[in-house]
Amino acid sequence: METMNFEYDARGPLTRRAHVGVVGSGDLEVLIEPSDKPTAQVRVRTSVKGYTQVWKAVLDRFFGRFERAAKVEINDFGATPGTVTLRLEQAAEEVRS
């Protein structure tokens, strides 16, 4: 298991929280909730070691557009970057709806 932390600038608050996904093979769960700090703080725990740069690229792209003050936890069990992005989009959709 590898743990990574990232932090991104935020422009606006988040009012809702959401949980999507499952820590199953090739999948991940995302917990997203409002944060008091004016940033998005992301903690990733993944079963696959050595992909920090790939995680950074995926998260940079998503949180560059998301821009909400949020606490985000990702528990990953070997999801591909595409699956990670889809789960993040799903979580974003739920907190917006």
């Binding site: 929280r17 949980h19 820590v23 917990l31 909730e33 725990r45």
Partner: peptide, 24 residues
């Protein structure tokens, strides 16, 4: 005791295994 209560396994991370927020 849903995911945001974060009652996850304290034992799995110690063994290098990613836990789940609801412990399954």
């Amino acid at each position: 005791l849903g995911p945001f209560d974060r009652l996850e396994s304290p034992w799995l991370p110690l063994q290098g295994i990613v836990p789940e927020s609801d412990d399954g």
